[in-house]
């Protein structure tokens, strides 16, 4: 007993130390977000402590800002199309990598994954050159192509990793039970990689939504939300921007909850 007490104390100490560290870490991560939310309701234009009073003016201003609305609309348009496009290309690519062996397969795999490791600025400039050479006018659609290329690696890695974990015998069992390769894909493969596809899709959407470098080079006259925020920021952080940020945080939270709930339902 006597010997156990000091070790208990030191363990308690270690635990407290660890918890303090975690608390600091969390504070570092989340306090800026709380500050942003707080200032979005502050009735002063200057971002200084203490808060002077509560207001919804900034949100009212947002509601009247048509440039901002257009930018949000553009962002949703780009992110949705880019996500669909990467999934349409990425999922079959992952299937091919998983199933078919062909000469140059490892080179192919590296090439698909390359855009993840390349800085967005490189992807942006090179695609800008390509579109110029081909005489393609820059538009939101070129941004979609750029994002889809940059995000392809995300989808392929996620789906490929899941496929690798799927026992080969599952598909064999489906064949054995009379299913053609297509039916096997629909009935057995797809349901088992579905959560990976949804996850990769959500991730792509979010990454595309706040992407700046590639968008910067490939967009025509249209602005996406991050580009718009960036351009207004040149006049300093306004409470309006804080309000936009707060709305995005809220939407992200909803998205996360939806993803978690969807994932839980599947397990049952």
């Amino acid at each position: 007993m006597a010997r156990k007490t000091p070790s208990l104390i030191s363990r308690y100490g270690a635990d407290t130390g660890f918890m303090t560290f975690v608390a600091f870490l969390m504070a570092f991560l989340y306090i800026p977000i709380w500050v942003l939310i707080a200032f979005s309701f502050n009735d002063s234009r200057s971002l200084t402590w203490p808060l002077s009073g509560f207001t919804l003016d900034w949100y009212r201003k947002l509601a009247e800002n048509s440039d901002l609305h257009a930018a949000i609309g553009n962002s949703f348009y780009v992110a949705s199309l880019a996500t669909v496009l990467t999934l349409l290309v990425g999922v079959p690519a992952a299937m091919v990598l998983h199933k078919v062996s062909f000469p140059g397969k490892s080179v192919f795999r590296r090439l698909i994954l390359l855009p993840i490791t390349l800085p967005g600025i490189v992807t942006g400039i090179s695609m800008l050159n390509m579109f110029k050479l081909m005489g393609f006018p820059l538009s939101l659609e070129t941004v979609v192509l750029g994002h889809a290329t940059a995000l392809l690696g995300v989808v392929v890695t996620q789906v490929y990793a899941r496929l690798q974990r799927l026992p080969k015998s599952l598909e064999e069992a489906a064949y054995d039970l009379g299913a053609t390769p297509w039916r096997t894909f629909v009935d057995v493969t797809l349901p088992n990689i579905r959560s990976a596809i949804i996850g990769a899709g959500l991730l792509s959407f979010v990454l595309s939504f706040d992407e700046i470098p590639v968008t910067f080079f490939l967009t025509g006259r249209d602005n996406t939300l991050p580009m718009y925020i960036y351009s207004t920021m040149r006049r300093g952080v306004t409470p309006e921007i804080n309000a936009v940020g707060t709305i995005i945080v809220l939407l992200s939270l909803i998205l996360i909850i939806v993803a978690v709930v969807a994932g839980r339902e599947r397990k049952k």
Partner: peptide, 10 residues
Amino acid sequence: NMVFQDYALF
């Protein structure tokens, strides 16, 4: 029809 070593139940 085959009974697989790991059963391969869906």
